[in-house]
């Protein structure tokens, strides 16, 4: 079946170098450095990546970081809490704009 997203394309991520090797090299080096153990542990970074993957709704990133989080020893509970953090921020960011709506309504209403 033809779909826009193909699971096997995730494995071809590095192939983006084909059209621009220099920028791809810089990106992947940067990417690798970002996920190294630092002030945040590699496991914390994996959970953040999982939450962001859900925010940007990238199927590749969701597969990749669900797997990575398991490999970092995260529990299913921790992973679902990360998804709820993403959900709360997305929902909250809509809802907080309700203040802007109220401001406008109040401004133009008697």
């Amino acid at each position: 079946m033809e779909t826009y997203y193909k699971p096997e394309d995730l494995k071809k991520f590095a192939d983006v170098a084909e059209f621009d090797g220099d920028l791809a090299k810089k990106f992947f080096e940067y990417y690798g450095a970002v996920f190294e153990e630092g002030a945040l542990t590699a496991r914390e970074k994996s959970l953040i990546a999982l939450a962001v993957a859900h925010t940007v709704q990238c199927p590749y990133c969701i597969d990749a970081y669900s797997h990575d989080a398991l490999e970092k020893g995260c529990s299913e509970e921790q992973m679902m809490e990360a998804v709820h953090v993403s959900t709360a921020i997305r929902g909250g960011s809509s809802l907080v704009h309700g203040v802007q709506m109220m401001n406008h309504v109040k401004k133009v209403s008697m």
Partner: peptide, 15 residues
């Protein structure tokens, strides 16, 4: 510890 599925184990020390 061994993974409960088709994935590799994480870093031994942190686990």
């Amino acid at each position: 510890y061994n993974p409960s599925g088709a994935f590799l184990p994480g870093p031994q020390h942190s686990l």
